[in-house]
Amino acid sequence: MSEQLNVESRAKTGSINAQRLRAAGMVPANLYGHGQQPLNLQCKIDNVMSVIRHGARVVDLAGAVQDKAMIRELQWDTYGTTVLHIDMARVSADERVTVRVPVELKGVAAGSVDGGVVEHIVHEIEIECAAIAIPDKVTLKIDSLKLGGHLNADKIDLPTGATLVDDADLTIVHCVKPKEASADAGATGGEQPELIRKEKAAAEEE
């Protein structure tokens, strides 16, 4: 079930007005897609944070616009605590969309039992699926991952109806031998980096 987001139309645009809007507890938003005119909207920050907390990708817009929309992009502040802007695209229930979803590793790798370290290289993949059935995450079982081995994107369990957009040969996770870390801190003094212009001067002399 998709979440409901109450929106109001926004007449004033520009960064100054957007700042004033944020100070008043609202978030500026845009709605576009389906060949229709893009709309400038605004919504309450509490409502937005609630939708994000529930992990909703597709929302039912209510208020100034009554439509189904997919959250395309969220702009966060520096500390990742407040949403600054929302980009939304109009979608219909039967439409297929391309989205990036997180990859979750499941199980214990056989290689890690043998002393290897599992390194998660790609954390998100791009999939194509129905707009109303966007998964929160996709899982990759790593039980068969041996030391020195790797698992590609084609091994990911995709939900029914979803297809992989990314390269099937994309390495998602691998298991490698742990590197020997040196525990001694070296002294900073003494050595100095090489000067780039020094080389130039030497070349000119020649």
Partner: peptide
Amino acid sequence: MALMPKRVKHRKSQRGRIRGNATRGTRV
């Protein structure tokens, strides 16, 4: 061994000021 550049154009740099927030490298 502590980190240090391998090659530099100038050995010394001006102090500079740290103004504003980071706009890149703010996400995990």
